[in-house]
Design a protein around this nucleic acid. Structure first.
Length: 588
DNA sequence: GCCGTTTTCGGCCCGACTGTTTTCAGTCG
C-alpha cells in the first residue's frame, strides 16, 4: 500500500508551490493528497486495474495529477516535481512547519536573509537579524525563537492513549479553578459542556493538539480564558482573545480553548470536532439547501436568520441528515449513509462482556493471575481469557509446558472462587514457518489460542504472508493478535498482503484482534474497514500487562467504532453461551 | 489544478488573532 507515500509526495509538492507563491494549486494538491490518504483501497492496484482513468475517478484527482501519479508509479519520480524542487531551496518546506511562518514569510527570509534551513533560522534569530526586516519586529523574532524551541521539543503527533488522559486532566483542572473562582453567586457555567473536541473527540489514533470547547457569555468569558491560560501545566501563552486562546503545555503539546455562547454551542462543537473533510462536505450540503454553516450556527442565506446551533443534533437534523457520531466523521461515506438514514448502530462500551488477551506474572505481566481475575470481575465482565506468552518468547518469559499446566491448575482453583468465567488461553508465537509454538496436544487443551507474530519483522511480504496464512489454516488457532505488528511512531507494520490474510481468515472462521494498547491500536481503523468487507469477525482486546491496562479497552473500542463496527461484528460482546459459535474448542 | 443542481469559466471556507500596520496582511485552524 503506497497511498501514504504518494500523499506525502503531493503534500510536499503543495508546500513547495506555496513557497513559490503559486495560487490555488497547493490547495488542489492537498485535497488530492487527503483523498488518497482516506481512499481505503490501494491506489497502486487502482492504477493497475483501471489505469489513469481509475485515478481520475478519485475525487480531487484530475488529468494532471493523475499523470503525475502514473509517472511516479511507473518510474519512481515525477519530472515536474523534481524541477520544482530544484527551484526551491531545500529546507524551506521544513521552515514552513515552524509555527508563525507561512509561505510568504519563509520566502522573504530566504530571499532577504538567505535563511533556508532550521539552523540558518536559529543563527538569524540569535544574531537579531530578523527584527531588522521590514514587517517583522522584536516580538516576531521572539515568537520565532519560541516556536523554534517548541518545534525541537515535539513536532509530531502523540498517541491517543497519552493525550486523552492529559486532556481529561486539563479539563478537570479548569473546572476546579472555575468552581473556586466563581463561587456560588455568579451564574453557573454548564460544566457538562466543557469538553474536548477535534481529532481527540473522534478518537483518532494520533493527536496533533488538544481542542477544548466551553459555553459561556458576557463577563464569564474572560474568567474562563484567564483560568485557562493560568493553569499550572501551561508553559507558554500563544494567543488570548474573547473567543479563542491558545497555549503550549510545558511538555510541548498545544491546547486551544474556544468559548461560544449557548445559541452557538452545538454548531461550534460540530465545527471544531471535524474532520475538515467531513465539514467541507457538510457545508456543501448547507449551501445547496440555501443555508450557510459556520461555527456559530446554521443560517438561512436569504434572511440571515439562525435555524440551528444550540445542539449538534439540531444542525444535522436541519440539513436532512441522521445524527453522525464523532468517530465516523471522516468523509468516508458517513454523510451519504446519514442522508439515506442507514448509518450503522456502532458498538458501545456497555456491549463488551470480556477480554481475550491479557498477561500475568506467569510471563511478562506485572500482576498476579488472581489480581487480574479479580479486577476483571469488578469491571463487570462475564469472561476473560488468560493468554501468557508461549515458550519461544524467551524475552517475554514465555512459558514452558509445565508452567502452563501449573497455570491451568490455578485457573481451576480460582474458578471456584470467582463468578467470572476464566478461559485457558495463550498468546502463541507464530513461528517462522507458520507453525504454532506448542504441540497439538497442548493447543487442543487450550480454550482460546491467540496467534501472534512477535519476531522476524523484516521478512519479505511473501514470507510474512505465507507464515500468517499457514497459521490461519491451523485448526487450533482462534484469534490473530495485532495483525499488522505496527508500533505507533516506532515501527511500521510488517510487509504482508492483507487481502490474502483477510481472505484466508474469513475462509477459516478466524477472528481478527483489535489490540487496544495505546502504542499498538492494531488493527487500525482503515484495516478494520477493509477486513469487514471480507465478512470477518473481530475481538477488542487489551493485551493487558498490568491491572490498569485493563482500562485501555476504550482505545480499541474507539478504533472499532471508527471502523464502523456494530455489536454483532465483535465477538467479545457475545454472552458466554454464544462463544461456542465462534471458538472451535468451546464446541468440542 | 479541480470541479459543476452556481456547470466548461471562475470560484476555491472563513473567522479569529497577532504584530505591525495607520487600515491590514499573514497565519492558523
Amino acid at each position: 500500500m503506497r497511498n501514504r507515500e504518494i500523499a506525502e509526495l503531493l503534500y510536499e509538492t503543495a508546500d513547495i508551490m506555496e513557497f513559490q507563491q503559486i495560487e490555488w494549486k497547493p490547495r488542489a494538491y492537498r485535497r488530492a493528497a487527503q483523498n488518497i490518504e482516506n481512499l481505503g483501497e490501494d491506489i497502486e492496484k487502482v492504477y493497475e486495474k483501471k489505469g489513469k482513468k481509475g485515478l481520475t475517478e478519485i475525487p480531487g484527482i484530475g488529468e494532471a495529477i493523475a499523470d503525475h501519479i502514473a509517472e511516479y508509479l511507473e518510474t519512481g519520480k515525477v519530472k515536474k516535481f523534481e524541477d520544482l524542487k530544484g527551484k526551491a531551496p531545500s529546507g524551506t518546506t521544513e521552515l514552513m512547519e515552524i509555527r508563525g511562518l507561512g509561505a510568504k514569510k519563509t520566502k522573504r527570509l530566504a530571499d532577504e536573509l538567505k535563511v533556508k534551513t532550521i539552523p540558518d533560522l536559529k543563527a538569524a534569530v540569535n544574531a537579531h537579524r530578523i527584527r531588522r526586516l521590514e514587517g517583522f519586529g522584536e516580538i516576531s523574532e521572539e515568537n520565532i525563537a519560541r516556536s523554534l524551541r517548541n518545534y525541537e521539543k515535539s513536532h509530531s503527533r502523540m498517541a491517543l492513549g497519552k493525550v486523552l488522559p492529559l486532556a481529561e486532566e486539563i479539563i478537570s483542572a479548569l473546572k476546579t479553578t472555575l468552581k473556586t473562582e466563581l463561587g456560588s453567586k455568579t451564574p453557573e457555567i454548564d460544566f457538562s459542556k466543557l469538553i474536548y473536541t477535534g481529532s481527540l473527540r473522534r478518537l483518532k489514533e494520533t493527536i496533533g493538539d488538544i481542542d477544548i470547547l466551553a459555553e459561556a457569555e458576557g463577563e464569564q468569558v474572560g474568567k474562563v480564558m484567564n483560568a485557562f491560560v493560568s493553569l499550572p501545566a501551561v508553559g507558554q501563552v500563544v494567543s488570548k482573545g474573547n473567543t479563542r486562546s491558545s497555549v503550549i503545555l510545558k511538555e510541548g503539546l498545544e491546547v486551544d480553548l474556544r468559548v461560544v455562547p449557548p445559541e452557538s454551542y452545538g454548531a461550534a462543537l460540530q465545527y471544531f470536532t471535524g474532520s475538515k473533510e467531513h465539514n467541507i462536505e457538510l457545508r456543501n450540503i448547507a449551501q445547496r439547501e440555501g443555508y450557510k454553516l459556520s461555527e456559530y450556527g446554521l443560517y438561512e442565506k436569504a434572511s440571515g436568520k439562525q435555524v440551528a446551533g444550540k445542539s449538534e443534533e439540531e444542525v444535522y437534523r436541519k440539513l436532512g441528515l441522521e445524527y453522525i457520531v464523532p468517530e465516523l466523521r471522516e468523509n468516508r461515506g458517513e454523510i451519504k449513509a446519514a442522508i439515506k438514514k442507514i448509518l450503522p448502530k456502532l458498538i458501545e462500551a456497555k456491549d463488551l462482556k470480556g477480554d481475550f488477551h491479557l498477561h500475568t506474572d506467569y510471563s511478562e505481566g506485572r500482576a498476579s493471575l488472581e489480581t487480574m481475575v479479580k479486577k476483571a470481575e469488578t469491571m463487570g465482565y462475564e469472561y476473560i481469557a488468560v493468554t501468557d506468552h508461549s515458550r519461544s518468547q524467551r524475552i517475554a518469559h514465555g512459558m514452558e509446558i509445565d508452567t502452563l499446566k501449573a497455570q491451568w491448575e490455578e485457573i481451576k482453583k480460582l474458578s471456584k472462587r470467582f463468578k467470572i468465567k476464566i478461559l485457558r488461553g495463550s498468546e502463541v508465537e507464530v513461528l517462522k514457518d507458520g507453525s504454532l509454538d506448542y504441540p497439538d496436544e497442548i493447543l487442543k487443551e487450550l480454550d482460546i489460542v491467540v496467534g501472534a507474530v512477535n519476531s522476524g519483522f523484516s521478512s519479505s511480504e511473501r514470507e510474512m504472508t505465507g507464515r500468517i496464512v499457514t497459521a490461519l489454516e491451523n485448526r487450533h488457532l482462534d484469534i490473530l493478535a495485532h495483525p499488522s505488528g505496527r508500533l505507533l511512531g516506532k515501527r511500521e507494520a510488517y510487509a504482508v498482503n492483507f487481502g490474502t490474510v483477510f481472505e484466508t481468515a474469513a475462509a477459516n472462521g478466524k477472528v481478527m484482534e483489535i489490540n487496544s494498547q495505546p502504542s499498538r491500536l492494531d488493527l487500525n481503523d482503515e484495516l478494520i474497514l477493509r477486513a469487514k468487507e471480507y465478512g470477518l469477525k473481530f475481538c477488542i482486546s487489551t493485551d493487558s500487562h498490568s491491572m490498569s491496562d485493563l482500562a485501555s479497552m476504550r482505545y480499541g473500542l474507539g478504533q472499532a467504532r471508527r471502523g464502523w463496527l456494530e455489536k454483532e461484528d465483535v465477538v467479545n460482546t457475545y454472552p458466554y453461551s454464544r462463544l461456542k459459535e465462534v471458538f472451535k474448542k468451546l464446541r468440542d
